[in-house]
Amino acid sequence: MGRRRTETPGRPRQRARRAGAASAAPAALLVAGAGVDEAAGAGLGLIFVLTAAAAAALAAALCPRGRTWWALAAPPLAIAVVAVGAQLAAGAGRSGGSTVMAVVHWALDTFPAMAAAEVTAAVVLAGRALRPGRGRRACHA
């Protein structure tokens, strides 16, 4: 039988901390952007778009190499959840309008943020993939 590879005792904890930071920091940034925009009173706008792009860039920069597809798949879902939560917290659903109009308004508010986040994450991941010297040994011949 082959030898079983064991990890040092501290490794799983370090990975868990890094994974928590990779998801908590962008999420906090996204929630803060939605909160600031909703507090300004005009709904989700430019601040939310900018913080969504920054959160996607941060998530793409912090994600492990084997899980980079999450950095492209997660931003629209995270933005949708935060946007719905922000609009429910702000009372946008209680304005007396129809549900269809609320959904249309929500979609118009969040599409620019989703597009900016996707483009930013793709650019960061492309930069990570194309960065020279990454994962290669130096040749000292």
Score class of each variant (00 low, 15 high):
68 T>W: 03
58 L>G: 06
17 R>Y: 03
36 V>S: 10
44 L>I: 12
129 A>C: 03
60 A>V: 06
70 W>L: 14
33 G>C: 07
23 S>D: 06
1 M>C: 03
108 L>A: 11
93 G>S: 09
124 V>D: 09
65 R>P: 10
23 S>H: 09
125 L>R: 00
5 R>H: 11
94 R>D: 11
79 I>F: 12
93 G>F: 14
96 G>R: 01
89 A>D: 08
119 V>W: 09
106 W>H: 11
97 G>N: 01
91 G>Q: 05
135 G>F: 14
32 A>W: 11
33 G>Y: 11
37 D>H: 15
109 D>I: 00
122 A>I: 01
25 A>N: 00
51 T>P: 14
53 A>V: 05
125 L>C: 00
7 E>R: 05
99 T>V: 02
127 G>R: 03
90 A>H: 13
140 H>E: 02
14 Q>I: 01
91 G>Y: 12
70 W>K: 07
125 L>V: 04
76 P>G: 13
63 C>A: 14
45 G>A: 15
113 A>I: 09
126 A>F: 05
140 H>T: 01
17 R>I: 11
119 V>A: 12
130 L>I: 01
133 G>P: 12
11 R>T: 04
97 G>W: 08
79 I>T: 08
68 T>K: 01
113 A>H: 12
141 A>C: 03
16 A>V: 06
43 G>L: 13
117 A>Y: 13
90 A>V: 04
57 A>D: 13
41 G>Y: 13
12 P>G: 02
34 A>H: 13
89 A>V: 10
56 A>I: 05
115 A>K: 04
110 T>E: 13
121 A>W: 08
64 P>M: 03
110 T>G: 15
68 T>E: 11
83 A>F: 14
9 P>A: 07
130 L>S: 03
53 A>N: 12
45 G>P: 13
120 T>W: 08
43 G>F: 11
98 S>I: 00
25 A>S: 05
65 R>E: 12
87 Q>W: 10
48 F>Q: 06
30 L>P: 11
26 P>G: 00
22 A>M: 06
141 A>Q: 06
108 L>H: 11
97 G>P: 01
21 A>D: 05
10 G>M: 03
